[in-house]
Design a protein around this nucleic acid. Sequence first.
RNA 1: GUCCCCAUCGUCUAGAGGCCUAGGACACCUCCCUUUCACGGAGGCGACCGGGGUUCGAAUCCCCGUGGGGACGCCA
Length: 464
Amino acid sequence: MTIRTRFAPSPTGFLHIGGARTALFSWAYAKKQGGKFILRIEDTDVERSTPAAVQAIMDGMQWLGLDYDEGPFYQMQRIDTYKKVLQTMLDAGTAYYCYSSKEELEALRETQTLAGEKPRYDGKWRPEAGKTLPQVPSDTPPVIRFKNPQTGVVAWDDLVKGRIEIANSELDDLIIARNDGTPTYNFCVVVDDYEMGITQVIRGDDHVNNTPRQINMLVALGATIPQYAHLSMILGDDGQKLSKRHGAVSVMQYHEDGYLKEAVLNYLARLGWSHGDAEIFNMQQFCQWFDLDHITPSAAQFNTEKLNWLNAHYIKEATSDAISADITQRLAKLNVQVHAEPNLINVLNLYKERANNLNQLAKDIAYFYAVPVANAADVEKHLTDDIKPTLKTLAKQFSTIEWTAEAIHHEINLVVAQYGLKFPKVAMPLRVMLCGIAQSPSIDQVMNILGQKETLARISASLT
RNA sequence: GUCCCCAUCGUCUAGAGGCCUAGGACACCUCCCUUUCACGGAGGCGACCGGGGUUCGAAUCCCCGUGGGGACGCCA
């Protein structure tokens, strides 16, 4: 049997980090098994679903490279199918109409909660042999409920959490169609997972409690039960639950914030899953290694520091060519236009290995394309009056030499020796004059890439 | 409240009864490299939630606590 997994987000917001990991695991599992990965949009909540959210989710998946083999399927376009199945269940007696009003149910819940009981439907309209149902009210349109078994247990071997058993006595008859006739989540999931031939349902563990109900419905439909893998949640950096109000951000925000998708993917893969001591791996390796029995059942706390480390690794590993367009855009956002000279590739070659973020990288190299405003503290500390004569001598020499890093280095050494100084004594003021700050890569290499003309211009501007 | 789940360094994790004096990674600290800052290299600090069992032997299995989380919608 070929493996079929799905990612089934509801389009009520962007693709966040937890959703992205669920998608990643489902995707990787299908890849590993040579199966199919399906995208299904669960938009049956008309109130909250938006086309913008659908787009945001697809943008996120596209950025991460999580391509799907089938779909996207939209549940709202499958209403006819659901209605057909609903009718079948009504006919078979596995579902029934319920005329209890929302107010009535709310009151019921309140009483139960007050009495310390688990709130649940009381089965008022549930048909039983020999039971007389109440008079059907004329003014209340009915919902449809699933007739859940009342005895026995539902059990499944969760691929992440192990065997889970829940007594049917804990479950009530859930609503599978609203009083306007539209089907609800738990029902659509069941029909879709069944009809789409899903073999492994990989999803967040907030769905654990829905699973027994879904299994019961699957049984009622005579369907084969898929395997379930419930992923535990991802907590924020501070150990708190991620929510719209607290810390949950779109995966696209990571792009905005200067992260390479390779880093995000690698980080996410490693959050809750492991392959021995492997820390750094690409998606091809991940797809080869990925399996469901090395997933941690406990919640994982997001650690930005580690993501940063991975990001640094992947920036270092990327070719300058591969990131140059991205960096050009980020520089443009800083109002810095990249010119042909200094050559961006050379600049990136020099700076790549010291960066751990693309935005930071862009910021760090901006001085190559726009004369920097020197940091006052650095000027005061390094560009002192007593060093200026030396710098003037140096500038004069610089104008005469062949412009290579070696020659520049050699020239600095000569002047340094001439004045009886140490190398940093002139390297630091040069940094301040050329870069605006006292930290940079080797100053001779910086000068080499900056170019002779620009270097001399900046030095002379600083010394007058 | 009821049901369900979870529990190894600060964090992510390895660990399938003896390979564990508990391994790796991030972070942190020290040293080295050095032309500043980074990068890199070498070290260091640091954990099995508690209590009972089972067993010759438990981080690993069982039970009970404790702590954390999730679910209990005509949301998904």
